[in-house]
Amino acid sequence: MDRSAQPNDELRDLYRELILDHARSPRHFGKLADSSHEAEGINPLCGDKLKLYFRVGDGDIIEDAKFEGSGCAISVASASLLTDTVIGLTTSQAMDYFTAVNNLLTGDGSGTAADRPHVNLSKLRALQGVREFPSRVKCATLAWHGMNSAMRNQKIPVSTE
């Protein structure tokens, strides 16, 4: 007898099809041999562990980005969406996305950066389900803080716990 409840809207909102798809089949997964910027993101209590690689070329353009590691659906999907988003952007544009995603998940939720019209969150908005789950915000932001650390050439692993 199946007495299990249908997942309610908040749970469906957290685990949207797009999130589950990126968690199951993460894009740009693996090591980037010729990376110019790297960072590690570790949430030791969770056990989430991501390594991010970026190759920044002429004109400060992110030519390629990859990640590897393990974590929950939210942290892996977020890293996958990040790499999907930033390839082709300048590092400064990528950092604008970092600001906008932080705003989306922990700020007023608008995800906008008024003075940065190039920022278009589109599918990144799938991450905003975590706003209803405060204990999971750290999972969604881990990869983004990793990118921030990589772009600043900080050598120590970042954590969002």
Partner: peptide
């Protein structure tokens, strides 16, 4: 992942440990 499970269970009032 255990943490996703923990969140789903908590949403239904069930407290388990994950990690």
């Amino acid at each position: 992942h255990p943490h996703d499970l923990g969140t789903i269970l908590d949403h239904q009032g069930i407290a388990i440990r994950t990690g």
